[in-house]
């Protein structure tokens, strides 16, 4: 069956439909983030007079903050509200009419966005490494693949929250809160090595470090192979659990859907 390939292709065409938006997203944002991260951490390193902070040199820290925003975009795929918005405005109805599973449809469109940003990650990382030579290239592919797996896990978490819009009239704050938790405790705002050790030990039992920190560290070549394999298995396990919960919520929530909207 080719339909999933065509859905992905159509989604990609949507991303490419707006020329200026494409270039701003693809190149502009990364450059701005690079400049901000570099300026910020340069002054922090200068202020502390340290060469290495919590295992990161200035070059590595800059690379970390170059990868993280692109990784975040991979994680959040179609962005906040990718399901709830359609439930509220009634366009969600189309997935119920077409002879396919809306879960599969949404997963494909979501992961197409993630894959697009994955390509951005590969290009930006390669360009940065070409000039600065901070990390090798051998871990770029496993890192990107881990990000894609993390994107699937995060999508399942997001689906759980977004489907609550079948009951509640506004779930925006909840969505933003969950996103903040995932990124903050995943190392999206600060490397986890900056967190208290007790907290780091607790976080291992949550999905958060596998969503951001592990894929970033893998991409940078900082994670040993056994940690990568273990992390990938944990990610798959969490993704299955969240996906299953999202299905359960949909099974109950579908009775609440009334297809009204703008």
């Amino acid at each position: 069956m080719n339909w999933w390939r065509h859905i992905a292709a159509a989604e990609l065409r949507k991303i490419l439909a707006f020329r200026s938006d494409f270039w701003v997203t693809f190149i502009g944002q990364a450059l701005v983030q690079l400049l901000i991260a570099r300026a910020l951490w340069q002054s922090i390193f200068a202020g502390s007079e340290a060469e290495v902070m919590n295992g990161f040199t200035l070059e590595m820290m800059t690379l970390y903050y170059l990868i993280v925003p692109i990784g975040q975009k991979m994680l959040t795929g179609e962005n906040v509200g990718f399901l709830s918005r359609e439930i509220y405005d009634g366009t969600f109805s189309r997935y119920l009419i077409y002879p396919l599973s809306f879960f599969q449809y949404k997963a494909i469109t979501y992961l197409t966005h993630s894959a697009f940003y994955g390509l951005q990650l590969i290009l930006i990382f390669t360009a940065y490494n070409f000039f600065v030579k901070t990390a090798g290239f051998s871990t770029l592919l496993p890192g990107t693949l881990l990000f894609l797996m993390a994107a699937f896990a995060y999508m399942s978490i997001a689906m759980i929250v977004e489907l609550l819009s079948l009951w509640a009239e506004n779930i925006w704050s909840l969505m933003v809160l969950v996103r903040f938790f995932c990124l903050f405790f995943g190392g999206g705002y600060l490397p986890l090595t900056f967190f208290p050790e007790e907290l780091q030990r607790v976080l291992v039992y949550t999905p958060f470090p596998y969503l951001v920190s592990l894929p970033v560290r893998t991409t940078m070549g900082l994670a040993p192979p056994n940690e990568i394999v273990h992390g990938a298995l944990v990610l798959v396990a969490w993704a299955i659990v969240f996906y299953f919960i999202a299905h359960l919520i949909w099974r109950r929530g579908q009775y609440k859907y009334n297809g009204v909207g703008i």
Binding site: W3, I7, A10, R13, K14, F18
Partner: peptide, 17 residues
């Protein structure tokens, strides 16, 4: 799909149906 030309939407529907 609003962001696509109609023919692109039709191709997708061809596969879906």
């Amino acid at each position: 799909w609003w962001d696509l030309p109609a023919l692109d939407s039709f191709l997708l529907l061809k596969e879906i149906y």
